[in-house]
């Protein structure tokens, strides 16, 4: 047999030298770097220079959307008048089969100098997202539509993003997630990351998979008060499932603000100030003008 260890070594050396020579021919160190980058992009299965490179949000001309969410605090009363848990959270949990006790859109009950109000908090999808900045492996990234996604096949579970998130929007799959029959056949994508993987970080993704199908996020559809709007900076439209409005006008007219604006994270979730006043005090049975009658 002709092939000895030495032959193989020699062949390997030649091949390696050839590659390196080609790289140098391409322009020295820069060429070598380009080769490495190409190889990495190939390994990642993403085109070079895509949004995943962490350089920001690449643009895809016409069809690009820039999703935002608007929360009308004047209309949110934490589903108290319904005597039910927050319906946005319920809808979200059902849509995503959210594991354990996590709440991806959490409704906080806030007390601000005696003003009692409810604060639904999805992931803010910050434009300058601290979680994306600190991720050591680029598993957290901005999709082209501005949504912060997590690649659960890459996440190493260091939880730096959770420590960095100023909104406590991220959750961790600490143990083995429950196995659900309805999730068994779902094909994984960062937009709809089923089945969940132990030791990785999960969070709200504005129901990117539903928007792709042309549907509103589950929480927006689930909100019985129409307090949640889903919108798009690109077309400047937003909808709460009952009406379509101009996003910029809604934000301007209602003096929209963002949580912890001074941190400079530029969240994509806006809040219209209010204290649930559109609904508070209208509990069925005791509210003015409301009569529940048995048929």
């Amino acid at each position: 047999m002709g092939l000895t260890r030495r032959d193989i070594l020699r062949w390997l050396a030649t091949a390696g030298a050839g590659t390196a020579a080609a790289a140098w021919a391409k322009g020295g160190a820069a060429g070598l770097l380009a080769l490495v980058r190409e190889a990495r992009a190939a390994a990642e299965g993403r085109p070079e220079g895509s949004a995943h490179s962490g350089e920001g949000m690449a643009r895809d001309a016409a069809e690009t959307r820039q999703w935002v969410m608007v929360v009308d605090l004047a209309r949110c009363e934490g589903c108290r008048t319904l005597d039910r848990p927050p319906q946005c959270t319920v809808a979200c949990t059902a849509e995503h089969h959210v594991p354990f006790d996590q709440e991806w859109i959490k409704v906080y009950e806030a007390d601000d100098h005696g003003h009692h109000y409810f604060l639904p908090t999805p992931c803010m999808q910050c434009e300058k997202a601290p979680c994306v900045d600190v991720c050591p492996v680029g598993a957290s990234y901005h999709a082209e539509n501005g949504i912060v996604l997590i690649d659960h096949q890459r996440c190493i579970g260091c939880r730096f993003c959770m420590a960095a998130c100023p909104y406590a929007a991220r959750h961790f799959i600490w143990g083995d997630p429950p196995e659900l029959p309805q999730t068994a056949l779902v094909k994984y994508s960062p937009e709809y990351p089923l089945p969940y993987r132990r030791g990785t970080v999960v969070k709200c993704m504005f129901c990117a998979h539903r928007a792709r199908e042309g549907r509103l996020p589950a929480c927006v559809e689930g909100c019985p008060m129409g307090a949640l709007y889903f919108g798009d900076y690109e077309t400047d439209l937003a909808s709460n499932g009952a009406e379509v409005v101009r996003l910029s006008r809604l934000l301007q007219e209602r003096h929209a603000y963002r949580l912890k604006e001074k941190l400079g994270t530029r969240p994509r979730a806006w809040y219209l100030p209010g204290h649930g006043e559109a609904f508070l005090g209208q509990t069925p049975g005791d509210g003015a003008g409301v009569q529940g009658g048995a048929g």
């Binding site: 928007a211 042309g214 919108g231 909808s239 379509v244």
Partner: peptide
């Protein structure tokens, strides 16, 4: 205006 599966008159 139509937005996702919603449509209607958006006030300008």
């Amino acid at each position: 205006a139509s937005f996702l599966d919603q449509s209607g008159w958006a006030e300008l």
